[in-house]
């Protein structure tokens, strides 16, 4: 079974689909295990995002009204993904991503579950506006080459400017 890459959206939406006081823990697990079928392929929320959702629900209770609203947005998300038909969820079209991002904004604006979409991640917020978690890819870039090349280029540029200005000053002085 394939794992959803664009899980930030759905994880944020899945988080609010339960009324904790009405459902058992077993019901909750079943909800997170639900799949989306795109072109005959099944997709599921990753185990890491399920864990994040568990942690969020352990901290916050979501009302039944909010659950209903979020459930509708989840159905809309599934319809959007199915309509696009893109099996590689890292290659969704910009218009699809925009529609999915709007769903997160709608949930955030109309329920107690707050989140924002940034470049490359969905940030789930605490009730005080601080970050609860950033939902991104599991494996991070932990090399340093790009930053070091930038440092080299930056230092070289500064040296160049200083040197050039000194030469110009010397030329001006000699002409005067």
């Amino acid at each position: 079974m394939k794992k959803l890459f664009f899980v930030g959206i759905l994880a944020a939406l899945f988080v609010g689909t339960t009324n904790v006081s009405a459902m058992t823990e077993a019901d909750l697990r079943k909800k997170f295990d639900e799949t989306v079928t795109i072109n005959g392929n099944k997709y599921a929320v990753s185990d890491g995002d399920k864990k994040l959702a568990d942690d969020y629900l352990a901290k916050y209770e979501v009302s039944s009204d909010d659950c209903d609203y979020i459930a509708k947005k989840i159905d809309e998300a599934k319809a959007i993904l199915t309509a696009e038909g893109q099996e590689d969820l890292t290659k969704l079209s910009e218009s699809t991503k925009t529609k999915l991002k709007k769903l997160v904004s709608d949930v955030s604006a109309n329920t107690s579950v707050k989140g924002t979409v940034t470049s490359g991640s969905v940030v789930i917020l605490n009730s005080d506006g601080s970050t609860f978690a950033e939902v991104t890819s599991l494996v991070k870039q932990t090399g340093t080459e790009r930053s070091n090349i930038a440092i080299i280029a930056g230092v070289a540029f500064v040296i160049t400017l200083v040197g050039a200005c000194l030469v110009v000053k010397q030329v001006k002085n000699s002409n005067n």
Binding site: I152, A153, V155, A156, F157, I159, T160, G163, A164
Partner: peptide, 8 residues
Amino acid sequence: SFFFASIF
């Protein structure tokens, strides 16, 4: 200057 600074 940029050329030599970069190499250096």
